[in-house]
């Protein structure tokens, strides 16, 4: 079975994000970028499925600037077989991303699309769901366990109050949650091998889908700074403050 794994290049999770002075977005100039952590988990799961003999080929796709090739190479170093960059110099909205991915899926005909539940930059948590609707495939989101047998997948999801298990027919879209696995880091030999793997580059225009923006960002602002705490002398003082100032009692 062929699996398609979409990955996104995002600001590194260890970098402190700064808002641009004009509040139009996050300042990405000279900021370290990395693969979205949820995408990494999806890649890892695909590699494990391949190691178990369930998956025969892992195709890694990214939609983004030319530098996203670096992100694809990282996925190839983890164990992906070949890559595809759909180059777009503007940031696409989730619906546009889902449309492009549908076009890629139509071409590639994978048996499974395995992707992160959301990207840590926009936190939209939308592409997987939209993609499954566009393809008319079943979806299983927030997967914390995936078991594939024959033409269906049993997916465990973490939901409020416990675990839900879904049985979905393949092909399907499955999105990865944080606890699905612990992604490996690529070894140097695998980084070197990944340089030689096939990485095709196409333009987003090649797919002929409507990517016109439908959303307008009004402003991006830092969260309000937290005020410092205060010390109270007695328990009575605390109760009084909870009643009068905090208004929680």
């Amino acid at each position: 079975m062929k699996v398609l794994v979409p990955v996104k290049r995002v600001i590194d999770s260890n970098v402190k994000a700064r808002v641009k002075p004009d509040q139009s977005g996050v300042d990405l100039a000279n900021v370290k970028m990395a693969m979205n952590p949820f995408c990494e988990i999806a890649v890892e799961e695909a590699v494990r499925l391949k190691e178990k003999g369930i998956v025969s080929e892992i195709v890694v796709v990214s939609i983004g600037p030319a530098q996203a090739q670096e992100t694809i190479r990282t996925a190839l170093a983890m164990g992906g077989d070949r890559g595809l960059l759909v180059q777009s110099d503007v940031d696409l909205e989730p619906l546009a991303v889902a449309k492009v991915l549908k076009a890629v899926a139509d071409e590639e005909q994978p048996g499974l699309i395995l992707m992160g539940k959301q990207a840590i930059d926009g936190d939209n948590n939308a592409v997987g769901q939209m993609l499954s609707a566009l393809l008319g495939w079943p979806q299983a989101t927030f997967a914390s366990k995936i078991e594939i047998s024959g033409s269906s997948a049993k997916v465990t999801r973490e939901v409020d109050g416990g675990l839900q298990t879904l049985d979905v027919a393949l092909p399907a879209v499955i999105t990865a949650d944080l606890r699905l696995n612990e992604p490996r880091y690529a070894s140097l030999p695998n980084i070197m091998k990944a340089k030689k793997k096939d990485l095709a580059v196409k333009a987003v225009g090649d797919y002929g889908v409507d990517i016109a923006p439908r959303l307008t960002v009004l402003k991006v602002a830092e969260p309000p700074k937290r005020a410092g705490g205060i010390k109270v002398e007695t328990a009575d003082d605390m109760v009084a403050k909870l009643k009068t100032e905090a208004g929680v009692l």
Partner: peptide, 10 residues
């Protein structure tokens, strides 16, 4: 290059 960055990240 990307190779150096990948190795450093790993």
């Amino acid at each position: 290059t990307d190779g150096h960055r990948a190795w450093r990240a790993s």
